[in-house]
Structures are given as C-alpha cells and as structure tokens.
Simulated scan of single mutants.
Amino acid sequence: MGASGVGSFDNDNAMDWVAELEGYADDSPIVDALNTVIDQADDSPGTLDCSIAIAAAEVVAAQLGHPHEDCPEEIEVWVEGHPAPSATRVAQARQAIEVILAESELKGLWENSGGLEEWQGAMEDLLSRLPY
C-alpha cells in the first residue's frame, strides 16, 4: 500500500477508488465497498478493502455535510449531484469503520508501524462525522 499518512486519502488505493467514483451516477461503489468489509468482519478484512471502505465512508460523511478537511475535489463534485445518504447507508459506513478498527490487516499494519494511536484517532474522527 502506498501510504504517506493516517488520513483517509493518504494512500493510493483510496485515491484510485475516488478516481473511479467519478464515473458512477449511483452509489453502488459506496455500497459495495462498505459491504465488502462488513462481510469480512469475521475474517480480518484486507488492507485494500479497508482503504477503499474508509474512502467510501468519507463520501457518506461528505454527503452529510461533514467532509474530511482534505476531501478530494472529485468527492466534492460527486456529492453535489447526489442526495443525502439514508440512515441505513450511514449505519453501514459506521459498521464498516468499526469492523476495520476492531480487527483488520490495516489495523495490524498501523500496530506494526508504531502509528496505531494516530490512525485510530483519524478513524474516530471519521466516526464522529457519521452520526447515528
């Protein structure tokens, strides 16, 4: 994973997914990304899936009017043309982040790098922008 920081968009996987999102008129890539991690909850989701699900959860937060301070312009443009997410979608985004925080390959990478606390703080910030 090409990563330079703990931020949701500080890795190539997330940014590649963001670039692909522009081509979708519906929210199917968001649903797919979140459900992929949720469906792997018992199997420690992989780093790629986690990075993409985090970016998808950031889109949901942006749709709610709570974008990340480093939200890519591509997401801002996509959000402008789409309605606010349903309560179900917000719950899916929260659940995906909670799965990633509980046990995932991405969490393991941050544990091994010594940056776990900072990364967990970034994920808690994301959760705070996804209200119940």
Rank of each mutant, 00 (worst) to 15 (best):
D70T: 01
M15Q: 14
A93D: 03
N13S: 12
P131Q: 07
V79Y: 00
E103I: 09
S4L: 12
V18S: 00
D39C: 10
V99D: 05
P85Q: 07
F9W: 10
M1D: 08
S86A: 10
E117H: 13
V37N: 00
D16I: 07
C50N: 05
K107L: 12
M15W: 05
H68N: 15
T47H: 12
E20K: 09
P29C: 07
Y24E: 11
G2L: 12
H66S: 13
V31R: 15
A122E: 11
F9V: 02
A14G: 05
D125N: 13
V79L: 01
C71W: 00
E98G: 00
F9G: 00
L48T: 13
A61V: 01
E118Q: 14
E74W: 01
Q95R: 15
A57I: 05
E20T: 07
H66I: 03
G114K: 10
P72R: 01
A19H: 08
V18I: 11
D42S: 15
S113L: 09
P67E: 03
D70Y: 03
V37P: 03
L48Q: 10
K107V: 09
A25T: 06
E105R: 10
E124H: 14
E76D: 11
A102F: 07
N13V: 09
E103K: 15
L116H: 14
